[in-house]
Write a protein that binds this DNA or RNA. Structure first.
Length: 513
RNA sequence: GCCCCGGUGGUGUAGUCCGGCCAAUCAUGCAGCCCUUUCGAGGCUGUGACUCGGGUUCAAAUCCCGACCGGGGCACCA
């Protein structure tokens, strides 16, 4: 193609400056990853958002969507982000959770600008309940639960509903003094003809004798009441939460309407189906108490503490959540995707080491002492190499390979011990016997020999903790120099985070392949 | 049972409001090849989806109806 050659010659002959100049004339379409952004928020002015967990335990993966999406929007619109701890059910409060949640959010990279605790605000709720009673929008109901339910299901008002506001105020005051748990509640008047019975005159305040770890009170607001009051008082502009709150939103709107408050934008995202790990805070707490789980960071739990321990990076979680977005369809959360994102982050950082799970012996004859040198990271030679020493006695040595590789051995086959040499398999019993075959990698390549990791007689005991169970094995001695907290890759095995180092046995947590 | 939502490849997502530029985007997964002393990373190629049936329309992933499927709510929990 003479024309092409001519052009090439011409271009190549241009001086560098001229070339750069020419290049500027063309527009290059950069192959950029088009990551879908979250949609814009409606009325995004003076944005105030909030994350409102119940402090019953540390956060788990299920909380991340609310925490991260709200945080993301707060950052985008330079708005305020409030953490509100909703501890109005004394029975479901874990005193340690207040701090735990804060730490979890910090780890997640969520920026909190203000913290509110509902148990500090009980008087505010009482005040507002009183106001509702005064305007005849709420009443104290002393009907037994069952009885009220029967009436409500038939759209019939109970006798308490007809009582005057004045009288109700007295009954309200009584709730704080002589009334016992279960004897009286405050209901808001909605509409007894509402198609959904749950919406009819729902409860906003109740009495419970359950002790609260932070306050000494008996009357507590119910979720929909305290949330509506707080969201308004805190100037929350956008309420971003799960679809399971749709009914709550409708209930809260009654409160807004009675007070004549401007409503925030309500956005409901779909439910996240997360399989594999335990996510129920109460079941987790129970399991820990019973000794089934070690603590909140047990790998079988879906807590952030557990994920952190396994070496899952908060940035990976954020990306997974951003990926999922705010759509209102229910979805299955994919651990695979999360692991893929996590791998992208940790792969360049994680140095490589040999580890053989369920080790089996391989006796090699006809070999000399050998110092194998393997790179800490194949893509970063500047990090240096690690040493594995093979000591031979009368030309024989003992090394360990994984059960899986052991099972695949065939007589007469040549396999390469990575970074060392090739051996020919002689015999496989409960141990494998082999003889030195050759040194060169090229030889292994030519024979399409398997390349397997191994450890010499001098090695380190390793225990791998994974959600599926524990795996014991042997690793190279260099592992003993690692510090807790580091993330490494066990070649052909997966990424692990070093949890306990410096002892006889190294304990690592398995992240993923 | 009663009240609500929602259904795009294995998974997630864009597009649906305002029908045509969508024989449908991107990511991840999976498969193959190249490269590589890891089954890692990287490169290239490929696979694969509008739940179904009607209707409206010149034209439907997009609008309407129905079916089916999935989810939620029906607490003195949040």
């Amino acid at each position: 193609m003479p024309a092409v050659e001519e052009v090439v010659r011409e271009v190549n002959s241009l001086p560098k400056e001229k070339l750069t100049e020419e290049i500027k004339k063309y527009e290059f379409i950069e192959k950029k990853e088009k990551r879908t952004e979250l949609p814009e928020l409606a009325n995004a002015e003076n944005v105030v958002l909030r994350f409102a967990p119940n402090p019953s335990g540390p956060l788990h993966i299920g909380h991340c969507r609310a925490a991260i999406l709200n945080d993301e929007y707060a950052k985008r619109y330079k708005g305020k982000f409030i953490l509100r701890l909703e501890d109005t059910d004394p029975a479901r409060v874990d005193p340690q959770a207040y701090d735990a949640i804060l730490h979890d959010l910090e780890w997640l990279g969520v920026s909190i600008h203000e913290i509110a605790i509902q148990s500090d605000r009980l008087d505010i709720y009482y005040e507002h309940a009183k106001k509702l009673i005064e305007i005849d929008a709420a009443y104290v109901c002393t009907c037994p639960q069952e009885e009220f339910r029967k009436l409500r299901n038939r759209s019939i008002a109970c006798k308490c509903r007809e009582i005057s506001a004045e009288e109700n105020l007295k009954r309200f005051a009584k709730m704080f003094r002589e009334r016992k748990e279960g004897e009286a509640v405050v209901r808001v008047k909605t509409d007894l003809k509402l198609p959904d019975p749950a919406m009819r005159d729902f409860i906003i305040l109740r009495i419970t004798d359950e002790p609260h770890p932070r306050v000494n009170r008996r009357v507590y607001p119910l979720y929909n009441f305290s949330v509506a009051v707080d969201d308004h008082l805190m100037n929350v502009t956008h309420v971003l939460r799960g679809k399971d709150h749709i009914i709550n939103t409708r209930k809260q709107e009654f409160i807004y309407d009675y007070f004549g408050w401007k409503k925030p934008e309500f956005i409901h995202y779909g439910l996240l189906k997360i399989e594999g790990l335990e996510l129920s805070t109460s079941l987790m707490a129970k399991g820990i108490k019973e000794g089934i789980y070690s603590d909140w960071s047990d790998v079988r739990l879906g807590t952030l503490l557990a994920m952190k321990r396994r070496g899952i990076q908060p940035e990976a979680i954020r990306r997974a959540m951003l990926d999922v977005g705010i759509k209102d369809t229910d979805i299955s959360f994919s651990w695979k995707n999360l692991y893929a994102y996590n791998g992208e982050i940790i792969e360049p950082k994680a140095n490589r080491y040999f580890f053989v799970p369920s080790p089996r012996e391989l006796l090699v004859e006809g070999c000399a002492d050998k110092t194998a040198l393997a790179p800490l990271h194949p893509d970063f030679p500047e990090r240096g190499k690690r040493k594995l020493e093979i000591k031979a006695r009368e030309g024989k040595t003992r090394i360990y390979i994984s059960q899986q590789d052991f099972d695949a051995l065939k007589e007469g086959e040549v396999v390469r011990l990575m970074e060392a040499f090739n051996v020919e398999i002689l015999r496989v019993d409960n141990k494998a016997f082999a003889k030195f075959h050759s040194e060169a990698l090229e030889e292994a390549r030519r024979r399409r020999a398997k390349l397997i990791q191994w450890v010499p007689e001098e090695n380190a005991k390793v225990r791998v903790i994974a959600p599926e169970g524990m795996i014991e094995g042997l690793g190279e001695v260099n592992l003993k120099n690692l510090r807790a907290g580091g993330i490494v890759q066990f070649e052909r095995f997966g990424f692990v985070r070093v949890d306990e180092a410096g002892k006889d046995e190294l304990v690592v947590y398995f992240a993923h392949k």
